[in-house]
């Protein structure tokens, strides 16, 4: 496997995953804002989209105030915004094209279709109905693309690299979703009314990570701070939880690196340490301190795993 192709596959996975989460987060927050309780500031939900996307500063370079259409267009379809969904899809497609001989025609065609759909959309005048009309097909496409990755590719190096990118990125994105939601909640002041608003936020958190149904079923209770955070961070069986994805990412890393029969690989050791730390942390440990501090610590480590892996194996 060429290092350059390996790099493309890894990043194809990451951009695809990033796209899906960004689409879902924007959609869920936009629709939650529409019928939010009187006391919930609707602008905060729009701002939450920008914060999650890491665009809260960049946005104000182009616009002076929060505005529904501007925020959504900027995050979803603005080609001038390097972190917009349209650009994430462009990067994913560019990587897929560079690795065209390694992936299947079915997978390529599916990514290429998403690319053309998106780019056509980007040049239409933006309307509020476009949030739904755009994000829904993006998420459907994403599900199709992942199905094709798992079911049309040989589960060899190439597949392991894409999957590593997907799971690493998913762990990162879920972490970011939780962080920005906790930030949102911390902004609320502590009285009776705000308690209600806080409780309004947990279902949004779960829906933003496609976890609402499964969390309800798992706890047989409505979402709360404890059950939603525990579910998303530590559930070992739920494919959106951080623990699940860190374990998956480790599996793929191990498969990729073990080929070299390098038993004391320092890089794998570091990634393993991160996984075991998560595995043997209880939820009480996390709650004992500020969960944000814990999450940010894990997030820094995940970024490091990504950059170290690239440096070690994917540079060309």
């Amino acid at each position: 496997m060429l290092s350059r192709i390996a790099n493309s596959l890894f990043w194809m996975g990451r951009y695809l995953e990033r796209t899906e989460h960004l689409a879902r987060y924007a959609k869920v927050h936009y629709f939650s804002a529409l019928d939010a309780p009187q006391t919930q500031n609707k602008e905060e939900l729009l701002e939450s989209i920008l914060i999650y996307a890491g665009l809260d500063k960049l946005y104000y370079k182009d616009y002076d105030k929060l505005n529904e259409l501007n925020v959504l267009f900027y995050v979803l379809l603005d080609v001038k915004n390097p972190f917009s969904i349209v650009n994430n899809i462009n990067y994913a497609r560019e990587n897929a094209r560079g690795a065209r001989d390694t992936i299947t025609s079915e997978l390529w065609e599916s990514i290429n279709k998403l690319y053309h759909f998106t780019n056509e959309f980007a040049y239409k005048p933006f309307k509020s109905t476009h949030t739904f009309d755009f994000t829904s097909p993006v998420m459907e496409s994403s599900a199709e693309i992942k199905g094709l990755i798992d079911n049309t590719m040989v589960h060899d190096h190439a597949w392991n690299l894409v999957s590593l990118g997907l799971h690493l990125e998913r762990a990162i994105q879920i972490m970011r979703i939780i962080s920005s939601k906790l930030d949102d909640i911390n902004k609320i002041e502590g009285n009776e009314v705000s308690k209600a608003i806080e409780n309004y936020q947990w279902p949004i958190l779960l829906k933003s990570s496609e976890s609402f149904d499964m969390c309800n079923r798992y706890y047989k209770a409505t979402p709360s701070r404890t059950n939603s955070l525990e579910f998303l961070i530590l559930n070992p069986q739920f494919p959106k939880s951080i623990l699940f994805n860190v374990c998956k990412a480790y599996e793929h890393l191990e498969t990729l690196i073990k080929v070299t029969k390098d038993d004391d690989n320092p890089f794998l050791f570091h990634a393993g340490k991160l996984m075991y730390k998560l595995k043997y942390t209880t939820f009480d440990d996390i709650l004992a301190n500020d969960p944000l501090v814990f999450l940010n610590g894990v997030l820094d480590n995940l970024y490091k795993v990504g950059t170290d892996f690239e440096k070690e194996y994917l540079s060309f």
Binding site: M1, L2, S3, R4, I5, A6, R97, R100, D101, S105, H157, L256, Y313, L314, F316
Partner: peptide, 29 residues
């Protein structure tokens, strides 16, 4: 890419290759 894919062989660019002692190598992971 079509030909590489259909022959099942790698598609490489110049920057993936180098020459050492008159042999050509590709940079793999």
């Amino acid at each position: 890419s079509f030909l590489a894919l259909n022959m099942g062989i790698p598609l490489v660019e110049g920057r993936d290759l180098y020459v050492d002692k008159n042999f050509v190598y590709m940079k793999s992971i």
